[in-house]
Design a protein around this nucleic acid. Structure first.
Lengths: 345, 345
DNA sequence: CTGAAAGCGCTAACAG
DNA sequence: CTGTTAGCGCTTTCAG
């Protein structure tokens, strides 16, 4: 609505337009230092009239302060990650900090590249999924000089802070619950992702939990790609044809679990009498299914919020020791309708 | 592994460490201009040894080039938006450009704030959902001097470029298809979001399409919050109790449609004989349901990709006129199992 | 309360 | 092929 050339306006333009020094304009725009109400208003008005938008690039360089928080996650296709991102976003809502997202596709090399790019913006903090990273990645994090929060998993040693749940424990607890309900012939279905360490740990915890009672998984299957719900259907059908004696199916996520559930309902199979089921994540989706799939909440939003909070605390001048640097959240087991609470007659 | 103080390393440090001018180091690190293979390697090595990460803040200020693309979307909770984001991400994958996400929660004031913040980073382009913006937002976009792509909707005038589908037409087409299949008593269920202009336009197009044949919606209901799948169940039950004569239910999105579908299957109702159903979006989830819900693809990933492509083209020195600045994608109607193809006996 | 001077760390534009 | 000189647009710091 103003200038005719393409050059973005500078502080200088505003300064000229209202006869106040650049410095004063800067102060007004940042609410720093005392400025008389009169000039203050004048500056604000002309800035708005001109449509001036400050240049954070220059501002950040000068102040050596960048209000960006790098958030590095493996994927955007799995609802889990947008959900933690949402948690981060919420917590940062009314602060000057702003999240910047990087996606690694579960690839360590890509994680390295993405982190490097992010760090080159000199953000105020890094939130990164998982505890497993390449040496180079870990070195960059350690030497970055900024707060780092590793999230979603607590089975391992963090570079700096960490917030998440123990997937190993989650698997173990689920095994315990299943055995306690009297199931004995257990099948497992999950994603074929050697680089999804959390799924791996859950699986390990699960087999470990069973092993303690002398039980072993009797069948297992892994998939990759495609609609998880559809895969759940297919794989469940195949597994039950292959291993008709199974009385419990543990799915590494709720989506394939839901697919399995829908398939079994279709088949008129008695759940949880004939076959019990459980998934993982506690996705909202499950609320609408005909039967509630047993699951375990992964605390996605809470993790995002807690991680953002840690960054915020360190950005403020809070003594570092006052901050909980390791937060282990405890996922709640929801029995739903597919993991019975009493032994069958 | 290197310095003992907290100050991030600068070009200067690398320059000192390997006895080459800062300028040469800079050139090596950016692959610009000719540098002898020998010095090149030496610089690269010391940079890696020191763990030097360039400072893009300074670089961008000096070069007046910022390889960031602002992506402004209403929400991260609705899978639709992570999906377009994914499309953007993919297209930008092997380019220097990097997306930065802002979330508006469907609030015009927040959109304004978010855009202002984004523009203050002087990004190379803006991708923003929707065509409806406040005057201030539109002014900022128009005066930004960078490529702007408005996405997801084409029913209106863009500030600059636009890529999307016509939701009005999508609604109309669906109405036409439903009538053609012989349904006559139609109910509608959707979200209670006055600010979701795309849903609104779909609804308007739908009623318009029906009106042309002298048909009116006989019942309607709107929800907000909660699990869409669960809401679909509830609302469908309520609506059918209220209006038992309905023979078709049009849902404003696939999730509530899926909820309705599952409910009706539960009830043993004949689909699409007794009641037909349709949703909107073409979400992958539908693949795993017992029956395929009729739907219309919203072309999410394609939209993200096309938008990113437009930004890329303008960033390169391609003459502006060579670029398709308006792309209307055509959503395909998938009949699935819930919109019969022939009149009933 | 307001202004002037001196960079922030890098790159464009020239020299060699 | 390599180096030097000026800034980029802002904020810090120090004087009024």
């Amino acid at each position: 609505m103003t200038s005719t050339d393409k050059r973005p306006l500078t502080l200088r333009d505003v300064s000229d337009a209202c006869g106040v020094s650049e410095m004063t304009v800067s102060r007004v725009l940042r609410n720093r230092g005392d400025v008389s109400a009169a000039t203050r208003e004048r500056v604000l008005n002309t800035a708005k009239e001109l449509g001036y938008v400050p240049n954070q690039i220059a501002g950040s360089l000068a102040s050596k302060r960048v209000n960006l928080v790098a958030v590095i996650i493996p994927s955007l296709s799995n609802m889990v990650f947008p959900e933690v991102l949402n948690g981060v976003n919420q917590m940062l809502e009314d602060t000057p900090l702003q999240p910047v997202v990087g996606v690694t596709d579960y690839l360590p090399e890509k994680e390295e590249r993405v982190l490097y790019e992010m760090l080159s913006w000199r953000p105020s903090g890094v939130i990164i999924a998982g505890l497993e990273h390449s040496d180079a990645t870990r070195a960059m994090l350690a030497n970055s000089g900024i707060p780092v929060v590793e999230i979603m998993d607590v089975d391992g040693r963090p570079v700096d802070a960490m917030v998440g749940i123990s997937h190993r424990r989650a698997g173990r607890e689920m095994a315990k619950a299943i055995l306690k309900e009297g199931y004995e012939h257990i099948g497992f279905m999950g994603t074929k992702m050697p680089l999804d360490h959390r799924a791996r740990k859950r699986f390990e915890g699960f087999t470990e939990g069973l092993a303690k009672a002398g039980v072993e998984i009797e069948d297992r299957d892994f998939y990759s790609g495609g609609s998880a719900l559809a895969k759940g259907r297919e794989m469940t059908q195949e597994m039950l044809e292959r291993s008709p004696d199974l009385d419990f199916l543990y799915y590494s996520n709720d989506m394939i679990g839901a697919g399995g559930l829908l398939y079994l309902i279709d088949q008129g199979i008695d759940i949880p009498g004939q076959i019990g089921l459980a998934g993982f994540n506690g996705v909202e989706l499950l609320q609408g299914l005909p039967r509630q799939l047993a699951t375990m909440d992964a605390c996605r939003a809470e993790i995002g919020q807690a991680a953002a909070q840690i960054i915020l605390n360190q950005t403020a001048d809070v003594p570092r020791d006052d901050i909980a640097h390791q937060q282990t959240l405890t996922p709640k087991l929801a029995f739903g309708d597919t993991l019975r609470r009493h032994r069958r007659g």
